[in-house]
């Protein structure tokens, strides 16, 4: 038993956990390669990335929300609503303006969420549950529960056709936004302050950071991203439907959590979310390839998600162990020096 405990306590194990996204991704790719070698072809990869792009956009929007310690369940509904707007107004305004309008709808929905959570101080779970119901119902009302078609199916192809044989426009947009978010989170003052807001809101306020403004902003961002996702999705299939995005919210949350962003706030990364999405993309592709039925895929996703949050809970109770690259390197160096202060493990 003690041996087991020591194993779990070892730096190796904790290092593995910290970099679990990478580990899982490598594992996933390896397993996939064994099971279905053809998926490592470029075209396959491009296709799986594309498939995940829509969920990915929602997931990217969710990442700052979770870092700020909040939840947003309405992404899927906003996606549907924006898509419907982008298609529905095509006749009136033309395709591009209608698409822009769709994005505006996303922004407005985000503002509604922000209002509920920040101004009315409603718990974000309940607030976005309510707004999800509302937006979804709105979508159904506007379309009379029937999908609507756009004017020109060829227009959307621009989005979903691989450009020059590489990646689709959709994929490129999604990767671009992730990279931008990553930069924002790691290199801008506002981005770093967001971690403070999510981790210890009281101390953030005490340091002069306006937590409420930040939280407001994250919901608007999340809504906007869901809006963009919805517009792109609808354009690519030239259809706006009130049932789009029904499972997107959960898949997006799964990707974000798999990618290492904590539900309690204060920790997360855009690249991590990308990693989580890649993991899910790989798994989905493999399962599709093997003709695994949809419900089994669901089971797999659910189990992985549970295992990961369990792992997170289990490991987060082990404070005082730094296993970042820099620290690991330094500890190797330090073994030759006497430490200034004995590093004590937190009780």
């Amino acid at each position: 038993m003690n041996g087991l405990r020591r194993a779990f306590n070892s730096d190796t194990f904790l290092g593995l956990v910290r970099y679990r996204v990478l580990v899982i991704l490598v594992l996933a790719v390896v397993i996939s390669a064994i099971v279905a070698p053809s998926i490592l072809e470029f075209r396959s990869i491009s296709l799986s990335l594309d498939r995940i792009a829509t969920t990915g956009l929602v997931a990217v929007g969710l990442t700052p929300v979770l870092i700020a310690g909040q939840l947003d369940l309405s992404g899927g509904a906003i996606l549907a609503l924006s898509g419907i707007t982008a298609i529905g107004f095509q006749e009136q305004f033309g395709q591009l303006p209608a698409a822009a309008l769709g994005i505006v709808v996303g922004i407005l929905c985000g503002i509604v969420n922000a209002f509920l959570v920040v101004i009315l101080r409603i718990n974000s779970l309940v607030a976005t549950l309510a707004s999800m119901l509302f937006f979804r119902a709105l979508s159904h009302t506007i379309t009379d529960s029937r999908p609507i078609s756009g004017i020109d199916p060829l227009f959307g192809l621009a989005v979903s056709r691989p450009i020059e044989g590489t990646f689709t426009l959709r994929t490129i947009i999604f990767v671009l936004i992730i990279v931008l978010l990553h930069v924002w989170l790691t290199r801008t003052v506002a981005g770093r302050n967001l971690f403070a807001v999510g981790s210890n809101p009281a101390s953030a306020e005490a340091s002069g950071i306006r937590s409420r403004v930040f939280v407001f902003g994250t919901f608007v961002f999340s809504g906007t991203m869901a809006g963009i996702a919805g517009v792109i999705q609808s354009l690519s299939v030239n259809t706006g439907s009130p049932v789009f995005g029904e499972s997107t919210a959960l898949l997006a949350i799964a990707a974000v959590v798999i990618g290492g962003t904590r539900l309690e706030g204060g920790r997360g990364s855009a690249i991590g979310t990308l990693g989580g999405l890649l993991v899910m993309a790989t798994l989905t592709t493999v399962m599709e390839f093997k003709n695994v039925p949809a419900f089994i895929q669901d089971i797999v996703t659910g189990v992985i998600l549970l295992l990961l949050i369990l792992l997170d809970r289990f490991v987060s109770s082990k404070k005082g162990r730094d296993v970042s690259w820099t620290a690991l390197l330094r500890s190797l160096h330090r073994r030759r020096q006497t430490p200034e202060i004995e590093r004590t493990h937190a009780p």
């Binding site: 509920l116 119901l133 509302f134 937006f135």
Partner: peptide
């Protein structure tokens, strides 16, 4: 039935 959903959502909030 659809607007009913909207009402429900507004109710929770």
């Amino acid at each position: 039935s659809e607007p009913q959903g909207m009402v429900k959502g507004a109710l929770i909030a």
